[in-house]
């Protein structure tokens, strides 16, 4: 295997570069996925039938906490990549761990939020609005859940194999995914919650 030492480790082999390009293209597809969900949501936003409206069910508190949690996790995974590039295995693992803990906390609060909606009579079945809202949030939440397991697998691999071109590549790609979820959350926060509460 040819190693190119002028590049960061995650870009150091030909296959690594191709993997990263491939993942960017995948993120392009993910953007379309969320764009479709958002577009549908904007159509359904006021189609509440006999169910509650966004204004009635959205509560700022947990949503704000969630925003802070996810934004911070984006920062910590950035630190993890930085630590990885200067070859600090323990720091990389620590920051990855913090990222996943923040992600898990986010998920916990989101589940609590869904339960609140359920008790207020805003279920997946209530109206076009709630179906679309919960599908959009649920898709994001499912991505975060998947990310937690993915991140655990990567931590395990760094512990076992150290920071190699392969594990560095995986960690970097995982960080792209995590940042992407954060960006999507900013859209959700602005265009679903804030817009709905205005």
């Amino acid at each position: 295997m040819k190693l190119n030492n002028t590049q960061p480790l995650e870009y150091s082999t030909e296959q690594n570069k191709i993997n990263i390009v491939g993942f960017w293209i995948f993120l392009g597809a993910e953007i379309m996925l969320f764009a479709t969900l958002f577009t549908a949501y904007f159509v359904y936003e006021n189609r509440t039938g006999t169910g509650p409206t966004g204004e009635e069910i959205f509560i700022l508190g947990p949503i704000l906490i969630n925003t802070f949690l996810l934004l911070t996790s984006s920062f910590t995974i950035g630190l993890a990549i930085h630590a990885m590039r200067i070859n600090r295995k323990k720091a990389t693992l620590a920051f990855l761990g913090i990222t996943l803990v923040l992600g898990a906390a986010f998920l916990g609060i989101e589940i609590y939020e869904f339960m609140t909606y359920y008790h207020e009579g805003a279920t997946l079945q209530t109206s076009g609005f709630t179906s679309s809202l919960l599908l959009t949030l649920g898709t994001h939440g499912a991505h975060v859940t998947f990310g937690l397991f993915w991140g655990l697998a990567i931590i395990q691999q760094i512990i076992k194999r150290g920071i190699t071109p392969q594990t560095a590549n995986k960690t970097f790609i995982f960080s792209l995914y995590w940042h992407f979820l954060d960006v999507m959350w900013i859209f959700i926060y602005s265009f679903i919650y804030l817009k709905g509460m205005m």
């Binding site: 549908a40 359904y44 189609r47 039938g49 109206s127 076009g128 709630t130």
Partner: peptide
Amino acid sequence: NFFTTTAG
């Protein structure tokens, strides 16, 4: 209720 004709 995505493609239904009731409930929004």
